[in-house]
Simulated assay, not measured.
Amino acid sequence: MSVSRMIYLALAIWGAIHPMYYFVQWFQENGWDIMAMVDAWHANAASSGLVWDLTIAVIALTFWIIVEVATRRNLGALIAIPATFCIGVSCGLPLYLFLRSAPVR
């Protein structure tokens, strides 16, 4: 495995674990109410800006993955879409780069 693939994989794992630590901590302190978390994301203009920044990034990444999968016929790379929506761009993007950089058979 190339160095770049190992880095992508490490970033995908880090991007899955690190943000989840904070999400779980928040849920434990405030209850397991997803709508309360969404409200917290919009607590001020700065956090709302970050939410919209990430929302646009998720849409762009999803579109890119779909176009690339249609072109390259690498259906396994579609797993990066639910990873992006369920975990975040910090996991989905490096996971897709890891999958995309696999040697061509």
Rank of each mutant, 00 (worst) to 15 (best):
M1W: 10
S2A: 10
S2M: 07
R5Q: 06
M6G: 10
I7N: 02
Y8A: 00
A10M: 08
A10Q: 00
I13H: 03
W14E: 07
G15R: 00
P19L: 02
P19S: 07
Y21F: 12
Y21C: 09
Y21P: 02
V24R: 08
V24H: 08
Q25N: 14
W26T: 02
W26Y: 07
N30I: 03
N30F: 05
N30P: 05
W32G: 10
W32A: 10
D33I: 01
D33Q: 07
I34P: 05
M35C: 04
M35F: 14
M35A: 07
M35I: 11
A36V: 01
M37P: 03
M37A: 05
V38E: 04
V38L: 14
V38R: 04
D39V: 08
D39M: 04
D39N: 11
D39S: 04
D39Q: 13
A40R: 06
A40Q: 11
W41S: 06
W41F: 13
W41H: 07
W41K: 04
H42K: 06
A45K: 14
A45F: 14
A45T: 15
A45N: 11
A46M: 15
S47G: 08
S47N: 12
L50I: 13
V51S: 14
W52T: 02
W52M: 14
D53G: 06
I56G: 07
V58G: 01
V58Y: 01
V58P: 01
I59Y: 02
A60L: 15
T62Q: 00
F63N: 04
F63Y: 15
F63M: 15
W64L: 14
W64P: 00
W64S: 09
I65H: 01
E68F: 09
E68V: 03
E68H: 13
A70Q: 15
R72K: 13
N74C: 09
N74R: 14
N74I: 12
N74G: 03
L75Y: 15
G76I: 04
L78Q: 04
L78V: 06
A83E: 00
F85C: 05
C86N: 12
C86R: 01
I87V: 14
I87T: 07
G88I: 04
G88A: 02
V89C: 09
G92T: 03
G92W: 00
L95T: 02
L95C: 10
Y96P: 02
Y96E: 04
Y96G: 00
L97W: 11
F98L: 08
F98N: 00
A102H: 11
P103N: 07
P103M: 03
P103I: 03
V104W: 14
V104C: 12
V104A: 14
R105N: 12
R105I: 06
